[in-house]
Amino acid sequence: MSTTTDDALPEAFAAIVDDFNAVPEPERLQMLLDFSRGLPPLPERYAQHPELLEPVPECQSPIFLVAEVEGTGKDAPVHLFFSAPAESPTTTGFAGILQEGLDGLTAAQVLAVPADVSERLGLSRAVSPLRLRGMAGMLGRIKRQVQEKSAV
């Protein structure tokens, strides 16, 4: 089970942040592009019913997401699914980071993720503030869905 670091980031997410901050800025953008290629495709239940996903209007690109919560309460596992256009690798990369860093955590762990996580990646000079705001928008929607569905 993932633990939470002193920075209030779950272990998997903290490792991603550490990886981004361990390389020079130009390489961070390449890492973001790598995450865009690693975003899993939507399962058929969502690919066939895109209306079940919530849009994220803060993103410059059309991105949709849904958080599934298995049961209720703070220990309920969370699973994340995203629909993001391949021609928008930055936005898709942020979705990939969130999916890899948060998927499988408990509702309480997801809800405890600080809102400034996008800034912690060290991409502020490589990515526009609008794109960083898009990642914050994704996280905000994920947390709201988790809170509603887990009843935490």
Score class of each variant (00 low, 15 high):
21 N>S: 14
142 I>Q: 00
1 M>Q: 01
122 G>K: 10
2 S>E: 13
85 P>K: 00
122 G>A: 08
65 L>H: 12
130 L>F: 08
122 G>S: 03
110 V>G: 05
71 G>M: 15
37 R>N: 15
3 T>R: 10
55 P>G: 10
110 V>Y: 00
58 E>H: 04
37 R>P: 06
45 R>F: 15
32 L>A: 07
108 A>T: 06
32 L>M: 06
96 G>N: 00
50 P>T: 03
30 Q>H: 12
105 L>H: 02
72 T>W: 09
129 P>Q: 05
92 T>C: 09
38 G>Y: 09
57 P>M: 05
27 E>W: 06
64 F>P: 11
81 F>C: 03
101 G>I: 08
94 F>H: 02
93 G>W: 05
44 E>A: 11
5 T>M: 12
70 E>Y: 05
94 F>I: 02
146 V>F: 01
106 T>N: 02
134 G>M: 04
3 T>I: 14
60 Q>V: 15
150 S>I: 06
47 A>D: 01
138 M>P: 11
128 S>Y: 03
24 P>H: 09
3 T>K: 11
122 G>N: 02
88 S>W: 01
77 P>I: 09
22 A>Y: 06
16 I>Q: 01
32 L>H: 12
2 S>W: 07
23 V>G: 11
76 A>S: 15
146 V>N: 00
122 G>H: 05
130 L>Q: 15
150 S>E: 08
94 F>W: 00
88 S>P: 02
4 T>H: 12
27 E>N: 14
132 L>W: 01
4 T>W: 07
100 E>H: 13
79 H>Q: 15
44 E>C: 06
36 S>A: 07
72 T>G: 09
145 Q>I: 01
89 P>C: 03
107 A>S: 13
99 Q>K: 05
141 R>A: 04
64 F>N: 04
80 L>Q: 05
98 L>N: 00
132 L>A: 15
47 A>C: 03
151 A>F: 13
107 A>E: 04
114 P>M: 02
20 F>A: 03
122 G>P: 12
52 L>I: 07
30 Q>G: 14
143 K>Y: 01
89 P>E: 06
143 K>D: 00
40 P>D: 10
86 A>M: 07
88 S>L: 06
60 Q>N: 09
60 Q>E: 13
46 Y>A: 10
83 S>Q: 15
115 A>E: 14
110 V>P: 15
102 L>R: 06
151 A>H: 15
78 V>S: 03
75 D>E: 13
149 K>F: 04
114 P>C: 05
51 E>L: 11
135 M>Q: 14
65 L>K: 08
9 L>N: 01
8 A>R: 14
39 L>I: 03
53 L>G: 06
107 A>W: 03
107 A>R: 07
140 G>K: 08
57 P>W: 07
139 L>V: 02
145 Q>C: 03
109 Q>R: 08
96 G>I: 13
18 D>P: 07
77 P>L: 12
136 A>Y: 08
70 E>K: 15
93 G>C: 04
98 L>V: 04
105 L>A: 04
